[in-house]
C-alpha cells in the first residue's frame, strides 16, 4: 500500500523524473513506435510493420558496418586498454612533479576536441607530405595512403582512437593502482618476485574491477563509434564511410539514413537494433563477471 510518508521523497525526485520522462523515456518510446513506420519527419507516417528492420538487416551497408564494427572492437578495446595500462605503469613509476606532468600530457588528447584531433591526424596521415610519410620517406620507404588504402584504414582509425582514449583509461587504471596496498609489493619483493611477476600476480588481479569497468566502457563506446571515422573520412550525410566503406560503422549508417535520406523510421529501427546489441553485449559481460566471481 502507498504510504503517505513517501510523498516528500516522491516530490523531491519528481523534477528529475519529469525531465527524465520528457527528454529520455518519451524519445525512446516514440523512436520505438516510429521504427515501425515509414516517416520522413514532416509528412504523415505510414505503418510498415517490421519492414524497416528487414530492410536494414538485408542491406549491404548493414553487413559491412557490422563486420567493420566487429573487427574494430576486437582490436581497439584490448589494444586501447593495454596501452592505457602501460601508460599507467609508466606514470606510476614516477613521483611528484614528473608523475603529474606525464599524467597531464597523456590525458591531453582526451580534452582535445575530436574535430581538432581528426584534423591533426588527417595531416599526419597525408600522403607524401604528412608527418608519417615524411618520416617514412626519410628512411627511403614509399608513401602509404593510410586513409585511402582499405588494408590500412581500419588500423589508422584504431591508432587515432587509442591515442584519444588511452589518457582516460590511464587515469582510471592509475587510480586503481594507487588503491593497491603497497605491502603486497613489499612482500612480493621479499619473496624475490621480479617486476613482471608483480604486475601479473598483484597489479592485474587487484585491478580486476577497474579493468572490467574500462573494458565494459570501452566496448560500449566502441559499439557507438561515430565521430572519429566520420571526420577521418571527411564524411557528409550523403557520402560516408571512406573508400569501399572500409570505415563505415552502424551509427554512421543510421545518421545517413535519417538525415541524408530522411528515412527516420529506418534510422529509428537501426537505433533499436544497435541498442539491443549494446544491451546484450553489456549483459553478457556482466553475467561473465558474476560467474567469474562465484566460488
Amino acid at each position: 500500500m502507498f504510504d503517505k510518508k513517501h510523498i516528500p521523497h516522491l516530490l523531491m525526485v519528481f523534477p528529475f523524473l519529469a525531465l527524465f520522462a520528457v527528454f529520455f523515456l518519451y524519445p525512446i518510446v516514440s523512436g520505438f513506435v516510429y521504427s515501425f513506420y515509414d516517416w520522413n519527419a514532416t509528412t504523415t507516417s505510414r505503418f510498415v510493420g517490421l519492414a524497416n528492420y528487414q530492410r536494414i538487416v538485408h542491406s549491404r551497408d548493414f553487413s559491412k558496418a557490422m563486420w567493420n564494427l566487429g573487427s574494430y572492437i576486437i582490436i581497439t578495446v584490448p589494444v586501447g586498454i593495454a596501452v592505457a595500462f602501460c601508460l599507467a605503469l609508466l606514470v606510476d613509476s614516477f613521483k611528484g612533479f614528473w608523475q603529474n606532468f606525464f599524467r597531464s600530457i597523456f590525458f591531453m588528447p582526451v580534452v582535445l576536441p575530436m574535430f581538432l584531433a581528426a584534423t591533426i591526424w588527417r595531416w599526419i596521415y597525408t600522403p607524401n607530405i604528412g608527418l608519417l610519410n615524411t618520416t617514412r620517406g626519410f628512411f627511403g620507404l614509399p608513401s602509404v595512403q593510410f586513409l585511402n588504402d582499405t588494408s590500412t584504414m581500419l588500423y589508422s582509425l584504431i591508432a587515432v582512437d587509442v591515442w584519444v582514449s588511452a589518457g582516460f583509461n590511464m587515469v582510471i587504471i592509475l587510480a586503481g593502482m594507487k588503491n593497491i596496498p603497497r605491502q603486497y609489493y613489499e612482500a612480493a619483493r621479499l619473496d624475490g618476485a621480479s617486476k613482471l611477476q608483480e604486475i601479473f600476480y598483484i597489479t592485474i588481479p587487484m585491478l580486476y574491477p577497474v579493468l572490467f569497468f574500462v573494458t565494459t566502457y570501452g566496448v560500449i563506446s566502441a559499439l557507438q563509434v561515430f565521430d572519429t571515422p566520420w571526420l577521418l573520412t571527411g564524411s557528409s550525410f550523403s557520402q560516408y564511410g571512406g573508400r569501399q566503406n572500409a570505415l563505415l560503422f552502424p551509427v554512421m549508417d543510421m545518421m545517413g539514413r535519417g538525415f541524408g535520406e530522411l528515412k527516420f523510421g529506418q534510422a529509428a529501427a537501426y537505433g533499436f537494433i544497435l541498442t539491443t546489441v549494446i544491451v546484450s553485449v553489456t549483459a553478457v559481460m556482466f553475467a561473465l563477471r558474476k560467474k567469474g566471481h562465484q566460488p
Binding site: W123, T126, P127, N128, I129, G130, Q145, N148, G234
Partner: peptide, 19 residues
C-alpha cells in the same frame, strides 16, 4: 593518384607544395 579526394585539405596542401 595522390590517394586523397578532391575535397581533402591534403589535396590542396599537395598542390600548393608542388607535389
Amino acid at each position: 593518384t595522390s590517394g586523397t579526394s578532391r575535397n581533402d585539405q591534403a589535396t590542396k596542401d599537395l598542390f600548393i607544395s608542388n607535389q
